[in-house]
């Protein structure tokens, strides 16, 4: 018979995880859909009452997104323009019900190839804070997610925050999602970008990430390298820039389509980033 724990202090939660593995539940929006028609009886750690994990905190160098931050919390938070892309992703997750309950951390931990939060967080160079009863560590998001529904989280660890370092001055961001209907749709492709403008209309820093086109969303580093330092006008992505992607055929689209659409979306994202707000 499974037990259900809903501690109110982080220490208790980490203690419980230290004693043995448990299914962590935050907003439940991935948890329950994965258990349709099944008896739900595993040992659960419900982290929703952990006050310490709420809220978005802005420190000098970085922004810390607490593990219980929901998509709606993020949308409502007053944040700088380089969060616009992530906010756009938040507005396109599921319907409002899912945005009100689902957390960014849950999205990252669930590690779906189509997780809409991941490309923006990758483009923001986000790091994942993992806490256990005896240690805290930080990993770059790109290392944390290792595959389709696989992460580096140890059984005794809880993701306590996502940490976003501040990009350069004037940074802006964008997010484009392609799905086969308007609301509540799993992405066929999504593209996120962050651009830091430099002097003389040049690109000082550029980061582009593509989701749903490989097991784990990927940054397009060759594209980023090619365009950084170039003028903000004629920046064009080429098919070879998509080399890191490995799309597959599935019910939502063919691999060939994904590659083609990804290129279109990357170009559109670049075009948007080039236009000063």
């Amino acid at each position: 018979m499974g037990s259900y724990l809903r501690p109110t202090a982080l220490g208790q939660a980490l203690e419980a995880l230290g004693e043995g593995p448990r299914t962590i539940v935050a907003g439940g929006t991935d948890h329950y859909p994965a258990r349709v028609g099944r008896q739900i009886d595993e040992d659960v750690l419900d982290i929703s009452a952990l006050r310490e994990l709420r809220g978005i905190a802005d420190t000098r160098k970085q922004v810390r997104i607490g593990a219980l931050t929901t998509w709606s919390d993020l949308v409502r938070a007053p944040l700088p323009a380089w969060f616009d892309g992530l906010k756009q992703a938040a507005r396109e997750v599921g319907g409002l019900q899912v945005q009100n309950a689902g957390t960014l951390c849950g999205n990252v931990c669930n590690a779906s190839p189509a997780a809409d939060g991941v490309p923006s967080l990758l483009a923001l160079d986000a790091r994942v804070e993992l806490s256990a009863r005896d240690r805290v560590r930080e990993l770059p998001l790109s290392e944390f997610i290792t595959g389709n529904r696989r992460t580096q989280r140890g059984h005794d660890e809880l993701v306590t925050a996502l940490i976003v370092p501040k990009p350069g001055k004037g940074a802006r961001s964008t997010f484009l999602k392609l799905g086969a209907r308007k609301y509540m749709v799993i992405s066929i492709v999504m593209v996120a970008g962050v651009l830091v403008p430099g002097r003389g209309g040049k690109i000082a820093d550029l980061r582009i990430a593509v989701g749903a086109c490989s097991e784990v969303a990927q940054r397009l580093s060759a594209l980023e390298a090619d365009l950084t330092g170039r003028p903000m006008t004629a920046a064009l992505a080429k098919p070879e820039h998509l080399a890191p992607l490995g799309p597959i055929d599935d019910i939502r689209g063919t691999a060939a389509y994904r590659r083609d659409a990804a290129l279109t979306l990357v170009r559109r994202a670049l075009a948007r980033l080039m236009i000063a707000p």
Partner: peptide, 19 residues
């Protein structure tokens, strides 16, 4: 299954009763 939880819409099929 949409209900209001503290005034906000959520799907009751994904809310743990304990919450």
């Amino acid at each position: 299954c949409t209900v209001l939880l503290d005034g906000e819409q959520v799907c009751a099929c994904m809310v743990p009763a304990g919450q």
